[in-house]
Amino acid sequence: MSTPPSTPVLTHLLYLHGFRSSPQSFKARRTLEWFARHHPQVHVAIPHLPASPRQAMQQVQELVRAWPKKSMAVMGSSLGGYYATWVAAQYACPAVLLNPAVFPARDLAQHIGEVTSWHDPQEKQFFQPEYIGQLQALAIDPSQPPSAPQWGLIAQGDEVLDWREMVARYPLARQTVLAGSDHALSDSFELYLPALAQFLCTLGADAGQAVINH
């Protein structure tokens, strides 16, 4: 009798924060703490992304350059979810998408100018007009099936992004659509983190594609 293949195991996780956010965000810190407690063997990286999308993805590429691509995964929130979609396409790795931005070039056009960080008002960046084109250049064709499993955690109560656009953008991903919650998933992220982490730790080996409503 042949031995069944072993389940793939995560070794490196990349977490990408959203617009005006940072590695100090609630979800970023909880993710880091959860893996440190339950899977300390997994290397979790949460880079502080610059305002320039091109520079942000160049930073990510440099960060993961030496990572084993067959055992890495990515998690991204809001704009970080848009970035995570691009990273997942480049490296054929599983992704968890937390209220992912779908049309950031459209939505962030109104934010051109000086912006401050949510977690440090003293930290200021300038969102340049050319960043809109940089965002457009990172778009992944939604008609192309992802090369690795994806799971979207989407809140109908998101006060920033339209949950219907998120659901429509990821038709082939496993989706958990929350009836309420908010953009930050402040009342639900910790509840789902163990399941999301298990999905990542097995590199999506147990992924389904059904839309789950709660």
Rank of each mutant, 00 (worst) to 15 (best):
residue 32 L to P: 07
residue 128 Q to Y: 09
residue 106 R to L: 15
residue 9 V to Y: 09
residue 202 T to E: 08
residue 166 M to R: 06
residue 20 R to D: 04
residue 151 W to L: 12
residue 119 H to Q: 08
residue 44 V to L: 12
residue 205 A to P: 02
residue 132 I to F: 03
residue 164 R to M: 07
residue 112 I to L: 00
residue 99 N to V: 00
residue 181 S to A: 15
residue 142 P to R: 00
residue 142 P to N: 01
residue 157 G to Q: 02
residue 131 Y to C: 10
residue 89 A to N: 03
residue 37 R to D: 09
residue 179 A to N: 06
residue 18 G to I: 08
residue 134 Q to K: 07
residue 44 V to H: 13
residue 135 L to K: 05
residue 189 F to N: 06
residue 203 L to S: 09
residue 85 T to F: 01
residue 152 G to D: 05
residue 83 Y to W: 09
residue 47 P to A: 12
residue 78 S to T: 03
residue 4 P to N: 00
residue 85 T to C: 02
residue 115 V to D: 01
residue 133 G to C: 05
residue 18 G to A: 06
residue 69 K to D: 13
residue 203 L to H: 04
residue 105 A to D: 02
residue 123 E to C: 04
residue 200 L to T: 05
residue 7 T to S: 13
residue 45 A to V: 15
residue 105 A to G: 01
residue 48 H to I: 04
residue 4 P to Q: 08
residue 24 Q to D: 15
residue 119 H to A: 07
residue 145 P to W: 06
residue 200 L to Y: 11
residue 78 S to R: 05
residue 152 G to H: 05
residue 141 D to H: 04
residue 94 P to Q: 03
residue 170 Y to S: 00
residue 171 P to E: 07
residue 197 A to L: 02
residue 147 S to G: 02
residue 34 W to I: 05
residue 104 P to H: 08
residue 47 P to S: 13
residue 178 L to E: 03
residue 87 V to M: 11
residue 177 V to I: 15
residue 197 A to G: 10
residue 84 A to H: 03
residue 192 Y to N: 03
residue 36 A to E: 14
residue 97 L to N: 06
residue 200 L to G: 02
residue 172 L to I: 00
residue 116 T to A: 15
residue 57 M to N: 11
residue 182 D to W: 03
residue 136 Q to R: 02
residue 192 Y to I: 03
residue 125 Q to G: 06
residue 90 Q to F: 12
residue 31 T to A: 05
residue 63 L to D: 14
residue 190 E to R: 10
residue 148 A to G: 08
residue 117 S to E: 11
residue 70 K to Y: 08
residue 63 L to P: 14
residue 136 Q to Y: 00
residue 159 E to L: 06
residue 39 H to R: 15
residue 44 V to M: 12
residue 176 T to K: 08
residue 58 Q to A: 13
residue 213 N to C: 11
residue 190 E to H: 06
residue 129 P to Y: 07
residue 89 A to V: 00
residue 169 R to E: 11
residue 97 L to T: 06
residue 145 P to R: 05
residue 1 M to P: 15
residue 128 Q to E: 13
residue 119 H to W: 09
residue 214 H to F: 04
residue 40 P to Y: 06
residue 101 A to I: 05
residue 162 D to N: 14
residue 93 C to V: 12
residue 207 A to D: 08
residue 57 M to S: 06
residue 203 L to F: 10
residue 82 Y to A: 00
residue 134 Q to P: 15
residue 42 V to Y: 10
residue 89 A to K: 01
residue 163 W to D: 04
residue 158 D to Q: 04
residue 80 G to H: 00
residue 117 S to H: 10
residue 86 W to D: 01
residue 190 E to K: 12
residue 129 P to Q: 03
residue 25 S to T: 05
residue 166 M to I: 04
residue 213 N to I: 10
residue 54 R to K: 15
residue 204 G to L: 00
residue 85 T to G: 07
